[in-house]
């Protein structure tokens, strides 16, 4: 393993001996048992594994939402495991875009307003916020839904708003925990097409999925079992979706 100044130039995400132990008092659960994982810039990784194998825990640590119990995590060469809360918030704001299984849009708030949220915490001026949010919505094909609220949109549309929100602040990394978990096959493909399109533009993507079909859209699959990486291999027969443009 090379030293960080060198890896920083090549790797976007690098985990070294990352472990996460949940101490519930009654028992100690090792959700991650010393993981080494490197994700290069521009990769498209799918994380798979049975329920409870530690996939979400990994994503939370990658996303700087949670801290490891032990180990080092270099994000663009910086050991973010040592960062203060505010510095982590800044990393989440500037470098990472999240896509959740349950969309996690703000209720009673229009699609456009939802997409502006990361920009508010980035200190972007109001007009500029609206301009960039509109552009992001256009990219996911939802310009005509800008003023709809989440409860006025389908699951697929909501998830596309979430993708727009994830990339509006020019995030280099998109982390998605089961982004298609609540969607039917057709809509799932819509989202995967969108993610492929973003990946083609250079965005690094790591996502969790249960479905082999979905994982085949990625470039690499990492398989988890009991908090350890069991397999790590490139996707042989990758499915490429033509980018869909629709409203």
């Amino acid at each position: 393993m090379s030293e960080s100044p060198v890896t920083a130039a090549r790797a976007t995400l690098e985990l070294r001996g990352i472990s996460k132990i949940y101490d519930t008092g009654a028992e100690r659960v090792a959700a991650l048992g010393g993981i080494d994982l490197t994700v290069q810039r521009g990769e498209f990784v799918s994380v798979m594994g049975p329920s409870g194998s530690g996939k979400s825990t990994l994503m939370n640590i990658l996303g700087c939402l949670d801290r490891p119990t032990d180990g080092q995590y270099f994000l663009d060469g910086e050991d973010v495991a040592t960062f203060e809360d505010d510095a982590l918030a800044r990393v989440r704001n500037r470098k990472i875009g999240f896509v959740f299984q349950s969309y996690n849009l703000l209720p009673r708030t229009t699609a456009l307003q939802n997409v502006t949220v990361p920009l508010k915490y980035a200190g972007v001026a109001h007009d500029e916020q609206l301009r960039r949010a509109s552009a992001a919505l256009a990219l996911v094909g939802l310009s005509d839904r800008a003023h709809h609220k989440p409860n006025e949109m389908s699951g697929g549309q909501q998830q596309r708003v979430a993708v727009a929100r994830a990339l509006v602040n020019n995030a280099a990394i998109i982390l998605a925990d089961e982004p298609t978990g609540n969607l039917d096959t057709r809509t799932s493909e819509e989202i995967m097409g969108l993610l492929q399109q973003l990946n083609d533009q250079g965005v690094t993507i790591a996502m969790v999925t249960h479905e082999e079909d979905i994982a085949r859209h990625c470039r690499r699959i990492v398989r988890f079992r009991d908090g350890h990486i069991e397999h790590d291999e490139p996707v042989g027969d990758r499915r490429i979706l033509a980018p869909r443009r629709e409203g």
Partner: peptide, 16 residues
């Protein structure tokens, strides 16, 4: 609470 979680994930600091 959930909204707060979302905002934090999107970059809100404690003081925000």
């Amino acid at each position: 609470t959930r909204e707060i979680g979302i905002r934090k994930a999107l970059g809100a600091r404690r003081r925000d």
